[in-house]
């Protein structure tokens, strides 16, 4: 089976570990070979959290620079920072809602303008898809469901052999009961936001 490499970057607390878990569970349900790797030592201390997921017949659990086929960013500055993970064919999906780091707040560095960020990414990758996942999460009924909105946008690219139904099932199994309904709604809002 062809190999597809996905990198997800987020800021600690945005819930990317849950979204990669849901995606992995969905792949397992469908019998799609999947491996993933995460660095979460500092996840709850506001640092950057990165997951690598490899679908298909590969043994490695990490992805080298320039080798991501798909790249999902929960935050636009982090999308730009991790651009070394992409190549000229990579499909990039990024949330446009900013989470400025504290360093920018105290004047150590400037947060670039969102249009500049988009332009820079666009010029270096295969395709750029943007959405305001925070707004859609709010619409779904839970501001914390940004991860599910982005998951929806990701599967709508149809690059991964993962169906929306399997995502729904994985959500029902993996996420807290009280949030299943909003999580599924968030996935659907993410999907329709990027539908072409």
């Amino acid at each position: 089976m062809d190999i597809t490499r996905l990198i997800i970057v987020a800021v600690g607390g945005q819930g990317n570990l849950l979204s990669s878990k849901v995606l992995g569970e969905a792949a397992c349900r469908l019998g799609v070979p999947v491996r993933m790797s995460e660095i979460h030592g500092m996840a709850q201390r506001g640092g950057v959290v990165e997951s690598a997921m490899i679908f298909g017949d590969a043994q490695s659990t990490i992805i080298s620079d320039g080798e991501a086929d798909l790249f999902l960013a929960f935050e636009p500055l982090e999308a730009l920072r991790a651009l070394n993970r992409c190549n000229s064919k990579t499909i990039v999906i990024t949330n446009t809602s900013k989470l400025p780091p504290f360093t920018a707040a105290i004047g150590k560095g400037t947060y670039p303008d969102i249009e500049i960020i988009k332009g820079l990414i666009q010029s270096k990758v295969g395709q750029l898809i943007t959405l305001d996942a925070n707004a859609l999460a709010k619409e779904a009924g839970n501001e914390l469901s940004v991860n599910m909105v982005l998951l929806g946008a990701l599967i709508e690219t149809n690059v991964l052999p993962i169906t929306a139904d399997s995502i729904h099932e994985a959500i029902s199994e993996t996420t807290k009961k009280a949030f299943v309904e909003t999580n599924i709604k968030a996935v659907e809002l993410g999907r329709s936001a990027v539908k072409q």
């Binding site: 600690g12 201390r45 320039g66 500055l77 920072r81 070394n84 190549n87 504290f102 360093t103």
Partner: peptide, 21 residues
């Protein structure tokens, strides 16, 4: 080997170090 993306035009970005909560 795949050419790595040219990132010379990316401005210096504000760091996001892990920090006390």
């Amino acid at each position: 080997a795949k050419d790595l993306t040219d990132l010379s035009d990316i401005p210096e970005l504000p760091q996001r170090p892990p920090t006390l909560c």
